[in-house]
Every structure is written in C-alpha cells, then in structure tokens.
Design a protein around this nucleic acid. Structure first.
Length: 474
RNA sequence: GCCGGCAUCGCCAAGUGGCUAAGGCAAUGGAUUGCAAAUUCAUCAUCCCCAGUUCGACUCUGGGUGCCGGCUCCA
C-alpha cells in the first residue's frame, strides 16, 4: 500500500515518491525558543513525529531535522523593530543566550513527555551564521538580492514563481500590506535576508556590516541545505508558515542553489480552543502543565491530537480532553485484556478475520493522508468485537502484537507498557485472588477490598462477574 | 479591504452523489453486584440557513451566516 499525502504546493493528494528509493529526508520548522511552547505548537511537532514514525514503519530510512530558532526575528519590518527574543530576555532580566538555554530545556522535556522521537538534528540558527552568509552572498551575486547600506533584501520580482505555494500574488500583497512601507526596499513584498542594528545584543560581524543579524527566513534555507542537501523530500510546519515563511524559503533556496528545493510541503491546521483561537487576553494559552493539573498526561494530549485529522481544525476543550483521557484508558484496558486472553500463545500471521480486517483498515486509513481518526476507529471496532464475541488465543496474540508493533510504534499512545519489572508475577496475583475469594466467602469485606486495592495499585484489574472472577493487567 | 479553509449527535470527530451518516466520550433505562469497578442488553444526529443542478445531495453549484487562517513575529 503506497501512502498518499496532501501537498500544499499542488493542492492535491500525491503518492509519496522519495528522491532516493526507501529514504525520506525531511525538515520541520521548530520553535522560536523565547517562551515555552504551548499545546498549539505541539500539534505541529506531534504531526512531524507521526509522519516520521509512519514512514519508518513503512520501511523508509528517515533523516529528520528540526530547527531551533534562537535568534529573534524582528517584530515588524521597520528598521527599529524589536527582536522578541531580546525583548523577552529584557523582561526576564537575563541574557538572551541564557533564555535560549532555559527554554530549550523545557522544550526537549516536553517532547520527551509527549513521546516524540528525537529528530536526528536540531540545528540552531546562531550556529549557522556562516552558512546563511554564504547563501546571502550567492543571492547578491546572482542578482536575486540587493544591499541597501548594511541591509540585504531579496527581490521577489527576480523569482517568477514567488507566491505559488500560498496563492498570493505579488501585486496584491502590496495592496493589502498593513505595514508601513519600508521605503528602502525596491518593492514592498521584498523581504529581508540580513538586517543591521547596533542596538541588537545578538549580532554578528559579517561582510554586510558589523552589527548584523539574519532575516526572518534564511536560517531554514541554510540549515535544511546543510543537513538534508539542496533538494529533499518533505518540509512541514503549521499553516501560518505557508506565507510568508515557506514562500520565502522556496524563493531563497531555489535561487541560491539553482536546483529544486522541496517536493512535498505539508502543513497542520491550528489548534482552536473553545471554538476560537488561543490568545493571551482570553487566558487560554495552555502548556502541558495546565493539562496535567486537569489530570491529563502529555500522552493523553497526544491521543487527543491524533483523534483528529492533521489538516482539520481541532477544537480543544477540557471536556474533549477528559474524553480523551477516558478513551485512552479504555484502549489500555483493551490491551491488558488481550494480553490475558493471549497468554503465552505466539502471534500468527493472519489472512482473514476481525484482527486482519482491523490491521488492513488501520493501515489503509493512514496511507490515506494520515487519517488517524479513521485508523483509531478500526482499533475501537476490534475492541468492540473482542468484548462482544471474544477472540481465540491465537487471534488475541495477533491483536496484541498488532497493537504493540504497529499501532503503538506509529501512534505512540500507550507509553511504557513493558517496564513491568517490579510488578507482581502471575503466581502472586493468583495467590492473592485465592485469599480474596476466601475473604469474600467469609464476608470479610474489609480484607477483600484491601486486596483489590493492593492489586489495583499494581495495575491489576479485577472483574467479579456472574461467570466468576477474571483479572488482567491494566 | 484582498486571498484561502472550515461548518456533521450534549462534547470531540471520520465519511459518502443513492443500502442502516464511522469511532470515541458523556447520557438514559434494564441485567449483574456485599460495595465498587468492569461487563452486558437497549436507546441516543439526516449532516449551519436559503436557492439551484440531479431520478436522487449531507456530499456538486450559487447566495447568506458563523468560525479559523494568510496579507504582520506566531505551530
């Protein structure tokens, strides 16, 4: 089954065709490390992780790069614009370099909690100044960029396809511009490659002047090129990156290298909160800690995100979060029941039946532009089938293997299910159950409940049913 | 003002020009139960509004309304 993905550039689904057979090189626009990323940011990063895991499951050798923007961009396009990283550092009364370190640590801790597999490289803008300068020089030499004093701008008229990704037209950009016109640019849509300001703290001495710093977009062009080559497979980001960021990247990279840049552009929709956007004024910009206060783990949030398709808007509410917690718990419970039903049986390869059908629909849903919502539905359908009609030990073993080696390796929603070194062994459980049964016969409810609590803390679930006692691990 | 996207059950969310519009969570009634949990049976939408195309539309077209995004750093 060949995966198909939606390409923002072509505005249609395309069968994935890697540049090199069985290899996928991809770049993700990462965070600007001036404040801890919020849950909306993490939607995009969770998507990148899903894509990577899925491609690897299909047998691709993936090379994944995510940048850390550790030099601030200007808050506007005027010469006296403020750098938000520098501004935040000033508010915190710390050095911007320290701020970058602090926030980066928080970011990586969050990624770890979310079960995101580390990218192969996390290049930082400030460590690639040389690569950026080289690229800017090339653009000047080839006539795509021009200097005005110590500033350098890209001439959008020098690259005819400018606007193709976003659907913008250069003339209309000018008409709708809300910015004050920067009179030193030849055209209002021209964008900065390099800026200079003696008041900046983070600045570099380069051929363009001694107080310069990179423009808004050049870091991604320079760093993707360094780690992935001039031409690579996939570039992702949030929908807000489409314009101007990715549009500008394409123009810079194609003009500087004179080769194609990226084949597949993928973008995630924004996360909404209570039907609207997150905003500081509404107080609904949440971090993972805010969710933890409501009893939801980072993996619960991951699950919540995966329940929706990445290109659709997701409406985050605490009610939906609670539902995700419950739903994921039920999935965990399902896994435990399968484990109990499978016993020591080895997982066979299947060619028919409910488990086989679940495997098929799961994979075909993901191949259809990563439709995680439909993929999860196939697992819940299998759960319903198991609960209503049961599964043979062999089928249960196959289902368990499917959950662990396909579902979880791609979706990463179960967490550590194998770290059970200090759990009770089956024999100990049976002994306690025997004692509890006796206690119940003696109507010693206190002892019976104490044993149940003890087992519960070891993540053993008991069920007293009309047909006797069953137990399984949660 | 100019571009683009979305609008499906209480909440979240798939999907299709035509059999019964996935799935999750919540809810309601019954069974089971020392209590609880779990389970179990049953119930739970006609797809924002209006007009049109069509034998037939929730699915296509036009208009309206609402929300989201881009045009400005932002996942």
């Amino acid at each position: 089954m060949e995966p198909r993905f939606y390409n923002t550039l072509s505005r249609q689904l395309e069968t994935f065709q890697p540049i090199e057979a069985k290899k996928a090189r991809m770049y993700h626009c990462g965070p600007t490390v001036y404040a801890r990323p919020h849950i909306g940011n993490y939607r995009a990063f969770l998507f990148a992780d899903l894509l990577r895991r899925f491609l690897e499951h299909l047998g691709y050798e993936v090379l994944q790069v995510m940048n850390l923007t550790d030099v601030g961009h200007l808050t506007d396009d005027a010469d006296d614009g403020e750098d938000k990283l520098q501004a935040q550092a000033a508010r915190d009364k710390i050095d911007p370099w320290v701020l970058v370190e602090n926030i980066s640590k928080l970011f990586f801790a969050d990624l770890d909690a979310l079960g995101v597999q580390p990218a192969h490289h996390y290049p930082r803008a400030t460590q690639h100044i040389d690569e950026m300068v080289e690229m800017v020089q090339k653009l000047i030499a080839s006539g795509h960029a021009y200097r005005v004093g110590d500033n350098v701008y890209f001439d959008v008229h020098s690259y005819a396809p400018y606007g193709k990704l976003s659907g913008n037209k250069v003339d209309e950009l000018e008409a709708g511009a809300r910015l004050e016109i920067n009179t030193e640019k030849r055209h209002p849509a021209d964008f900065a490659l390099w800026k200079s300001d003696p008041h900046h703290i983070m600045k570099w001495d380069t051929p363009f002047g001694e107080h310069g710093f990179p423009g808004w977009h050049i870091e991604c062009s320079a760093m993707s090129r360094k780690y992935l080559g001039d031409h690579f497979d996939i570039h992702t980001g949030g929908e807000d990156n489409v314009f101007p960021h990715h549009e500008c990247e394409i123009a810079q990279s194609v003009c500087a290298t004179e080769t194609p840049f990226v084949n597949l552009w993928m973008h995630t929709k924004f996360l909404q909160v209570d039907g609207g956007k997150m905003s500081k004024s509404l107080g609904n910009v949440y971090s993972l800690d805010d969710l933890a206060e409501r009893g939801a783990s980072a993996l619960d949030f991951r699950f919540l995100i995966l329940r929706a398709h990445y290109r659709g808007s997701v409406n985050f509410t605490f009610e939906a979060l609670t539902a995700a917690v419950e739903s994921r718990r039920n999935l965990h419970d399902f896994r435990g029941r399968l484990s109990a039903a499978a016993g020591d049986t080895e997982a066979p390869a299947l060619e028919s039946g409910a488990v086989f059908e679940a495997q098929q629909s799961f994979m075909s849903a993901l191949c259809d532009d990563l439709n995680t919502s439909a993929a999860l539905a196939s697992i819940f359908s299998l759960r319903t089938h198991f609960l209503k009609e049961g599964l043979s030990a062999a089928d249960a073993a196959a289902a368990l293997h499917f959950l662990d080696h396909t579902v979880d390796s791609i979706l990463g929603i179960f967490g550590n299910t194998t770290g059970d070194t200090d759990e009770l062994r089956d024999g100990d459980v049976e002994a306690l159950l025997l004692e509890r049964t006796q206690a119940r016969a003696d109507k010693n409810w206190a002892r019976a409940d104490a044993i149940r609590d003890e087992l519960a803390s070891a993540k053993i679930v008991l069920e007293d049913g009309p047909d006797g006692l069953h137990w399984h691990r949660a």
